[in-house]
């Protein structure tokens, strides 16, 4: 068997290996501590962000983009903090820097532009659905969408041959990529991504939706968030908004759909609202970035 020639691939091992290559942006942990600190002020928070000029520019552009449709011009991070909120800005900052973290993936394996377009679309749609459901802290849905397929990058970066074989098999047999992952690896990219984010100490409300976005029934704590990412991912696949490794449209989990309590006609409205935000957001996040 061809695969037996490769080093034994386990979830933990891959996470361990990846951890040395890719790490969470430095500001994230500091920002997290600051916003949780009872004594910190808006100034403290904005100081951390403004240290990264690229991030600052992206955040300000995002704050003024159709994604927020803010009533007033957000011309400073201080203002962004007060208007958008501390936790929300933290989540937004993570989403805005994640594309910079996973760089240098061989283009012949994954088209990164198409990959990130898919992730932005998933994040925006998940966020729009959350707004429709009057959820609070909707920015975490945006991050979760942005991060939901990082497992695919992890595999492509650390096991490019395995990744290529899976992609080719998928093309030859017309099967689901994630099924092939499970057959060959014993886990799928969702679990892999979730494991990495957990190692990065990303909040569980983001980790679980990523880890379970193909198996929403397996979610233990954040059923709603998981169901949102599950649905948003399928919508992106169906509408062909960008593309990751997956070529087909995975089946919708009926219980996840019921959990959301949405009616089908809402999806069209949400898609219509999301489309301009997706292209604008993608252009902001990919701007000046080598992807």
């Amino acid at each position: 068997m061809a695969l037996s020639n490769y080093p034994v691939t386990t979830l933990d091992r891959l996470v361990e290996e990846t951890g040395t290559v890719y790490s969470l942006p430095l500001f994230y942990e500091r920002l997290n501590e600051t916003i949780n600190h009872p004594r910190s002020s808006v100034d403290d928070i904005s100081k951390i962000i403004t240290e990264d000029q690229g991030l600052t520019a992206r955040l300000l552009r995002l704050s003024n983009s159709p994604m927020f449709g803010c009533y007033a011009k957000v011309d400073s991070i201080t203002k962004a903090v007060t208007i958008i909120g501390t936790q929300q800005l933290r989540d937004l900052a993570l989403a805005a820097s994640i594309m910079g973290v996973f760089k240098g993936i061989p283009e012949n394996l994954l088209n990164m532009t198409s990959f990130w377009r898919h992730c932005v679309a998933c994040g925006i749609i998940a966020r729009s659905l959350a707004i429709y459901l009057r959820e609070s802290n909707v920015e975490r849905m945006f991050v979760a969408g942005m991060l939901h397929d990082v497992g695919q990058i992890v595999l492509a970066a650390s096991r490019p041959e395995m990744s290529r074989e899976l992609l080719e098999t998928q093309q030859d047999n017309g099967r689901f990529y994630l099924e092939l992952e499970r057959e060959r690896l014993g886990f799928d990219h969702a679990e892999l991504g979730g494991a990495l984010l957990k190692k990065w100490k990303i909040p569980a409300s983001i980790v679980e939706p990523v880890a379970c976005h193909h198996t929403p029934g397996a979610a233990e704590q954040f059923h709603l968030e998981t169901a949102l990412i599950h649905l948003a991912d399928i919508m992106c696949e169906a509408m062909e908004m960008g593309q990751g490794a997956e070529r087909g449209v995975p089946p919708l989990d009926e219980r996840a759909w019921e959990r959301l309590g949405l009616s089908a006609h809402v999806l069209e409205t949400v898609l219509k609202q999301s489309e301009p935000q997706i292209s604008e957001t993608f252009s902001i996040l990919s701007g000046g970035m080598d992807v």
Partner: peptide, 20 residues
């Protein structure tokens, strides 16, 4: 009080819970 108060995230979450 104070014009640059950044309320800590846990408290804000608790506020959200109560208002819900």
């Amino acid at each position: 009080p104070g014009n640059s108060a950044a309320l800590d995230a846990p408290s804000l979450n608790a506020l959200t819970i109560v208002l819900h």
